[in-house]
Design a protein around this nucleic acid. Structure first.
Length: 433
DNA sequence: TCTGGGGTCCTAGGACCC
DNA sequence: TCTGGGGTCCTAGGACCC
């Protein structure tokens, strides 16, 4: 550790030029976890992903050397790297590793903003009594995570979250980079605009049209010009980002008092379909899944959104705000199905449908106006019974009758799969389609 | 066999209310 | 008569991130 005689800086953070914001990001997280116990795969290109019409979720650096990267269609990835080993993600294992990593973060500071399973912002200004500098915190975390999980991560240290995030990306793989305040513009300005966080394909194209390719170009363009082209908000934000100005603070999110804002589910058909019965059956399945997750999270939601993606990838959404909030499969499904009907599609080739519920509130605080035509104990009781059965017997134990179809004869012959519970909700699941 | 599934946030127009 | 402005909610779409 540090030599005893070293002069103590006025503030400890001065050792890193005032940097107390850190971004930590696992390297090729899904792929690293997939291969960590399989030495035979260490130097082989490995791709995590798959599914019938899927994309690459993560690729090892050996696979990236062939041009494979995440979000790439699997078909293309296989063409680029035919000898790659393809592995399906193991979300149970990933979430165990993720929890352990987050615990390591929280052992150095309570100010942790989780961004996803494998990355977070940390404000370590309060940790500088235990550590000499943010760099030391970063080194400690890197060593500890490797020790405990045998995966590497990269750390960016800066004075703002956005710069820290870019620094960790630059440090990859298995590195740590500090960008002190006085080096921020030298760090940012040579970057290509699309490297900025929040600049995707569409924005990059727009910026290129304006002749702006580097972050430095962006910085030296009058903010009014950017605002005219991109809108007031985006223009100002981009200009500020190009100078490393960022009023974002690291905010521990999703505390018990802050629920998710929406819960949804969508699914791409294995083959495009123009069969309305198939679509409605899928909407019912998705509604059941969403509603069950809502009830498990003890939230109700007020707005149901239907998403439809067509064969050519054009995507539309339709939403409706309900009179009362709900977490009921029936109500969500009925709304989604009605929105679908109102599209008036005729033999359109559909690639994907989705159901999402927004405007979530704590179920305990949700109000419900009793209607005269409504029995005191209706669907909600039935659905709670379904939840209990699913918890006990698994997801296939209870399904709405319309989802049984071909598997129904199996259910009848195999009571061990809790076939009798198909009676679950007594009626109605079958009504709408 | 091009292009997943989970989300968040922003914008913009129209309705509606005061 | 012919025209306010601000605030909020709803809806649709788009962009982006991992």
């Amino acid at each position: 550790m540090a030599e005893a005689a070293r002069p103590v800086p006025t503030t400890r953070a001065a050792a890193d030029g005032g940097c107390t914001i850190m971004h930590v990001d696992m390297d090729a997280f899904y792929a690293s976890v997939a291969i960590r116990d399989r030495p035979e795969l260490q130097d082989v290109p490995v791709i995590v992903g798959g599914g019938h019409r899927g994309v690459v979720l993560s690729a090892t650096y050996a696979a990236r050397a062939h041009g494979v990267h995440s979000a790439m269609p699997m078909t293309r990835a296989r063409r680029l790297c035919p000898r790659a080993v393809i592995i399906a993600p193991d979300f149970d294992e990933l979430s165990v590793v993720s929890s352990s990593v987050m615990e390591a973060f929280r052992s150095v500071t309570s100010v942790v903003e989780v961004l996803s399973m494998d990355e977070a912002f940390l404000d370590v200004s309060g940790s500088l009594r235990r550590f000499d500098s943010a760099t030391e915190v970063g080194s400690y975390l890197r060593a500890r995570i490797y020790d405990e999980q045998q995966i590497t991560c990269s750390v960016g240290v800066a004075t703002t979250p956005t710069v820290a995030k870019l620094a960790s990306r630059r440090a990859k793989p298995d590195g740590l980079l500090v960008v002190p305040r006085h080096e921020v513009t030298a760090f940012l300005h040579p970057m290509r605009v699309e490297e900025l966080w929040g600049v995707g394909e569409a924005t990059a194209t727009q910026l290129h049209r304006l002749g702006l390719r580097r972050v430095g170009d962006l910085a030296h363009t009058p903010v009014e010009v950017l605002q005219r082209a991109m809108g007031a908000g985006s223009g100002a934000r981009l200009h500020a980002m190009a100078w490393g100005v960022d009023d974002r603070v690291v905010t521990p999110r999703r505390g018990p008092d802050e629920p998710e804002r929406s819960i949804g589910s969508d699914e791409t058909f294995s083959r495009d379909t123009d069969d309305e019965v198939v679509v409605r059956r899928e909407l019912l399945r998705l509604s059941a899944k969403v509603a069950m997750r809502m009830r498990a999270a003890q939230v109700c939601g007020g707005t149901v959104t239907l998403k439809v993606r067509f064969h050519d990838f054009t995507t539309i959404t339709r939403s409706r705000t309900l009179r009362d909030t709900t977490s009921g499969t029936q109500e969500i499904y009925a709304t989604a199905a009605e929105l679908f009907s109102r599209l008036g599609l005729e033999r359109a080739r559909i690639r994907l449908v989705g159901v999402r519920v927004e405007g979530l509130v704590d179920a305990a605080r949700a109000t419900r106006q009793l209607r005269l035509d409504e029995p005191a104990h209706g669907w909600e009781d039935a659905e709670r019974a379904v939840d209990r059965a699913v918890n006990r017997f698994g997801g296939s134990a209870v399904r709405p009758a319309t989802l049984l179809h071909k598997s129904s004869h199996l259910a009848r012959r195999a009571p061990a799969s809790a076939g009798s519970l198909h009676a679950g909700p007594p009626q109605g699941y079958d009504q709408a389609p």
